[in-house]
Computed example of a mutant assay.
Amino acid sequence: MTASITLGGGPVRPVLCRNRGVPMQRRIFAKAGIAAAAVAVATAALAGPQAFAGEGPGAAVVAFAGHAKGPAPTEQSVGAQRGPFATDKLVVPAQAGRGFNKGTIYYPDDTSQGTFGAVAVIPGFLEGESAISWLGPTLASHGFVVLTLAPNATTDYPEPRSDQLLAAVDWLANQSPVKDRVDPARLAVAGHSMGGGGTLIAASKNPALKAAVPLAPWNLYSDFSDVTVPTLIVGAGRDFIAPAVMHATPMYNSLKAKQDQGYLKLKNADHFTTNRYDATVTAYTVSWLKRYVDEDTRYSQFLCPVKSGFQLTCPV
């Protein structure tokens, strides 16, 4: 599959949050984000920069920041359906009062490399968990704890889906059976269609999130200029359900003046292309999550250098 990729950047500008009925939630999350950031900075200062020497004697030492895990990435590895980590899974049954319905946790079975970043993923209108289930084992095998969700109702609009995503990542990091594997300061959200619209709303509500990946997003409004979370929007050129010109493109246009915002527009792709494994979608999603959730600068090379048709202030 071919793709035209537009990645946008620029200076971060303070933007007032639009009132979408949750100003208090956003303030609470913002305060939590400041606290999480302080913990992350203190931890990094104690740990210092990490260095990987590759394999074999005499291999070059490469220093980088962040929470890097796994072998040095390659063009082939970032788009692979299965990454370097073996994975396990747990079924999460429905439970009242938790804020989300049910789902499946996929996680690396390696306990020797510390905690991992976590991602919650929700499907779109009239879709079940199976619509986005491929992302579970794929992202987990690249070094993330992933919770794929069944929505509370398949007819839920983006707003309630955003609340389900936020409840899910919070539960995953603090109450789930795999909470000891999750770094609660490194959380991300993703979703398809109305779940993609919910992903952007979740990023608006909780600026402490490390990344957001809306896939073929649909929403009744497209102005997300208040979002500061690093966001990779994936649109489809032949999407007739959430046409990019009405959804993904204006959503990205509302973000692109800020740093660390990206737009991957897939040519010859429809609304449901991201509901199954795709090497291009995987390569950019994995690289984005690695760069911003793990702060692993080894993955910057797969977002940069700027190529024809790109617009990006490259992350370092």
Rank of each mutant, 00 (worst) to 15 (best):
109 D>C: 02
37 A>T: 12
110 D>F: 04
51 A>F: 11
59 A>I: 06
129 E>H: 04
20 R>K: 11
87 T>D: 04
47 A>V: 12
74 T>H: 08
24 M>P: 04
77 S>Q: 09
120 A>S: 06
30 A>E: 15
128 G>Q: 03
112 S>K: 06
116 F>Y: 07
69 K>R: 15
79 G>F: 10
41 V>H: 05
75 E>Y: 07
79 G>W: 05
62 V>D: 01
88 D>M: 07
74 T>S: 15
51 A>I: 15
70 G>W: 08
137 P>T: 06
94 A>E: 15
76 Q>E: 12
60 A>D: 10
64 F>S: 11
131 A>Y: 01
120 A>L: 03
33 G>E: 12
40 A>N: 05
81 Q>M: 05
61 V>M: 13
82 R>Y: 08
32 A>C: 10
30 A>G: 15
121 V>F: 09
100 F>L: 11
61 V>Y: 07
93 P>E: 08
114 G>R: 02
66 G>K: 01
63 A>C: 13
139 L>I: 01
33 G>L: 07
56 G>N: 11
131 A>W: 00
138 T>N: 00
72 A>Q: 11
45 A>S: 14
133 S>M: 02
34 I>H: 12
94 A>P: 15
124 G>P: 06
24 M>S: 10
122 I>P: 00
125 F>L: 05
130 S>L: 02
122 I>A: 03
76 Q>R: 15
68 A>Y: 00
84 P>M: 07
86 A>E: 11
76 Q>V: 14
35 A>L: 12
99 G>N: 03
123 P>H: 11
130 S>N: 06
41 V>D: 09
32 A>E: 13
26 R>A: 10
113 Q>Y: 05
109 D>V: 04
131 A>P: 01
125 F>D: 01
111 T>D: 13
93 P>M: 05
44 A>H: 14
119 V>F: 03
47 A>M: 13
46 L>C: 08
108 P>W: 09
118 A>W: 01
91 V>E: 06
73 P>F: 06
35 A>I: 11
95 Q>R: 07
